[in-house]
């Protein structure tokens, strides 16, 4: 069902329209909340708050962005608010220095990058990914979740996080390399 049909049904309070909204968006929103570091209860509460806010304001929703973009945008801000108390400030220079250290003066690799790229994702690798994700900032996690996992296009991802396309690239660069560095360490130490 397209956004226009869904909005029409929701505004008309058609039976089943709320169920259809939950059926389509709850799982991706829950997955995003989990990947952004929320516990299960907090993730469920954040998704409920997001959908509630949307339904309360549905008559004012103009459809200038897609439903998915709008809902993920609201979710991102709610998750950030919840994490703000425990937010760890990451030194942005860390990743740049670590990345630069991989290459010699001519920009050539110092050594072969190593990692589990030929392994299937099992329980151990799943827990590694979750541990490594804790080293990312909110914006880095959001950029990675939206682009790499959800496949959201660049323009929408920028709107959701509130950054430029250039900054989105920087966030993705830092997120992917933090994952790679973290996974390589765990791979070497296992």
């Amino acid at each position: 069902m397209g956004d226009q049909d869904r909005l029409r049904d929701l505004k008309a309070r058609r039976p089943g329209s709320v169920e259809a909204l939950v059926e389509e968006f709850a799982s991706p929103l829950l997955a995003a909340a989990r990947s952004w570091g929320l516990s299960e209860p907090d993730a469920e509460e954040a998704v409920q708050d997001t959908l509630t806010d949307f339904l309360v304001a549905i008559d004012r929703f103009e459809g200038r962005s897609t439903l998915k973009t709008f809902l993920f945008g609201v979710m991102f801000h709610k998750c950030s608010e919840r994490r703000r108390k425990n937010k760890r400030e990451q030194a942005t220079e860390d990743m740049e220095a670590a990345f630069a250290g991989r290459f010699g003066s001519l920009g050539v690799w110092n050594s072969l990058p190593r990692g589990p790229e030929e392994e299937a994702v099992n329980g151990e690798l799943k827990s590694w990914l979750e541990e490594c994700a804790r080293g990312l900032s909110d914006e880095q996690r959001a950029a990675f979740q939206l682009k790499a996992v959800e496949g959201v296009d660049t323009e929408d991802a920028c709107k959701i996080i509130g950054v430029s396309a250039t900054n989105l690239g920087v966030l993705l660069f830092r997120a992917r390399n933090k994952f790679r560095e973290c996974l390589e360490k765990k791979w070497k130490n296992r």
């Binding site: 709320v18 939950v22 709850a26 799982s27 997955a31 994702v121 979740q145 996992v149």
Partner: peptide, 26 residues
């Protein structure tokens, strides 16, 4: 590419408890 695929496998699919969450949300 592996990191992206692995993340999709971990965070891109519905979790086993999602159906119960959906019922509560509804």
């Amino acid at each position: 590419r592996w990191i992206d695929r692995a993340a999709k496998a971990v965070w891109g699919a519905p979790a086993p408890g999602d159906e119960a969450v959906k019922r509560r949300l509804i």
